[in-house]
Design a protein around this nucleic acid. Sequence first.
DNA 1: TTGAAAGCGCTACCAC
DNA 2: GTGGTAGCGCTTTCAA
Lengths: 361, 361
Amino acid sequence: MSKRHEHRSRSRLSDVAERAGVSAVTVSRAIRHPEMVTPKLRKRIDKAIHELAYVPNRAASMLASSRTRLIGVVVSSLTNGVFADFLRALHDLFLPEGFHVMVLDSRYVPGEEETAIATLLGQHPEAMIVSSIDQTPRARQLLKRSGIPVVQTMELAKSPIDINIGLSHEAAGYAATRYLIELGHRRIGVIGAPRDSRLHNRIAGYERAMREAGLDMTGLAGRSSNPSSVVLGGELMRGLVERCADLEAVFCCNDDLALGALFECHRLGISVPERISLIGFNDLEYAACAYPSLTSVLTPRYEMGRKTAEIVLEIIRGSGKRPPRRRIDIGFKIMERESTRRRDIRPPVRTARNARQSEQV
Amino acid sequence: MSKRHEHRSRSRLSDVAERAGVSAVTVSRAIRHPEMVTPKLRKRIDKAIHELAYVPNRAASMLASSRTRLIGVVVSSLTNGVFADFLRALHDLFLPEGFHVMVLDSRYVPGEEETAIATLLGQHPEAMIVSSIDQTPRARQLLKRSGIPVVQTMELAKSPIDINIGLSHEAAGYAATRYLIELGHRRIGVIGAPRDSRLHNRIAGYERAMREAGLDMTGLAGRSSNPSSVVLGGELMRGLVERCADLEAVFCCNDDLALGALFECHRLGISVPERISLIGFNDLEYAACAYPSLTSVLTPRYEMGRKTAEIVLEIIRGSGKRPPRRRIDIGFKIMERESTRRRDIRPPVRTARNARQSEQV
DNA sequence: TTGAAAGCGCTACCAC
DNA sequence: GTGGTAGCGCTTTCAA
């Protein structure tokens, strides 16, 4: 026995081998390639493994095979439901293939993302997945030098580091706003907590749609540098309503904000959608069953995670060959529900200003 | 050079040693215990490390030292906000100490939890944290045999595997129900999706409170084997209202269900709390700003994660010594808000049955 | 189909 | 303070 670990409790491959009356290599094979071992032996080995509660030592197999079977993942937030779906997809796809997913979060801070990337890279993952596109220069360099597949997800990048799977948040923000405009709304506000480029881009999309439609935006933006939350949605909504008496619709940059805004409207006695239309973003679970149900922009997060994992697995299995398309737009979809309504259906409570603006179209 | 890795690109400890003109052991020490090496040598070694872009091979050091600096964590769900707070605390406490947190989820399935535990143990974590107490016998065995600190969290166990930090969900369910009873309610329903012992225990607490108060429970339980969700909360609430015309209050076994129930009440035109009082569980972020704001049972999840990490770090640093108390009750707290109200304040719309029951007290 | 031997890159132990 | 040596537990190679 070893000099160092006199009281080792954990059983090794050789312990299993001894108990099953075979050699260690055979046990190793029985675990990794069961089809290469006689059913009879396999059975004996399985029994021994079970009896000894044997768990392979990954450190040893990593060292021997120089395969870590680790996937590094950095998300912006662990608390946000958006990333939960994405992570679930990654787990669903990677675990059955024998890969481990190591997740770190950046809390929406680029510096923390850089640290997380460096930390993860130190574990020598076989691929890195980051849920953003705006890495620091050093983080980009680290990822590029690593030589492993790198996937930037959630949004579309102009110059991807390697692979990029996401959607255009600018286009989605634009579409959400266009949707409100086509419903006949003119006084359209936006509330958001722009902590990352995704939020910035959604707001940029809103602004483009408003500009193109020749609509005035002054006083219609409710922003905060605090993290998005339901509470914040309520606060920003209240601010907007107070500043802008003739508000007709609001693009909420995510569903948490939308939920808060909806509650605040209830509280203030503002009926949705009769007086104000509300559209959210991400289409989280509660959007569909809120009262009124929340119109929202569906972002296919599980799908994005699935696609990401599929591409990574393909590259790893294909010994590094990259797929033809390095940039994949996964799209989005507006889910129309009760919280938005055509303006002409609602009771005509028009201010002079509303009337004037309506004539612009 | 090795026969197997002819094209090795990563430099090793011995490469650095050669370049710095020292032995490999000295390089190893210079990295781990810089104070044990002469400044002069240290400088030369640092230079060599930098020039070779040397990154230690964790697999090798794990194997050699049997120190992985890994913490294995199994939560019931990655999507549930409850575990997000808990995980955040773990990351907050462990990362600065140089530990990595590996998280897997069980989706509330004991079999998947067992798999997750086995998988995690294969990484040789220095501690395991599981967010439940009802492990399968095999999982318990694996954990016990592992010889590392094991913390079962979220709920209190009768016979903990090792350390246990949590709260009594039975007591919390009892307290929530007592709270409603003391508010003067008699026809109190419960909705829940009992997928784990926590939910079972909350319902058991409800039942004990009802029994003790001599209240009838027939037709007042809305259960489902589907996973908890906002949608499900709405469905169960509707079922309850349809079955029980004189419903006065509902204990929702978690806030997602409570949110769904609240929306459903809005939808059905049932005013909360005027006609029905609603109490949730967990006190998630949105509870405080819902309309009406949701009374809920606060479970200190971040605190629980913090305490867990502190104890684990203490044990690891103290070379395995366990703290005096192996079972820590972290408690809970009822957050009184607008969704619950005294029965005698509401307009007297009493059925014969209500009147009769009121006299029981 | 199975097994023996030789490392993977690092650290613990002990000598100097 | 520094270095030699012997593994850590597994997989790869090659022979049987």
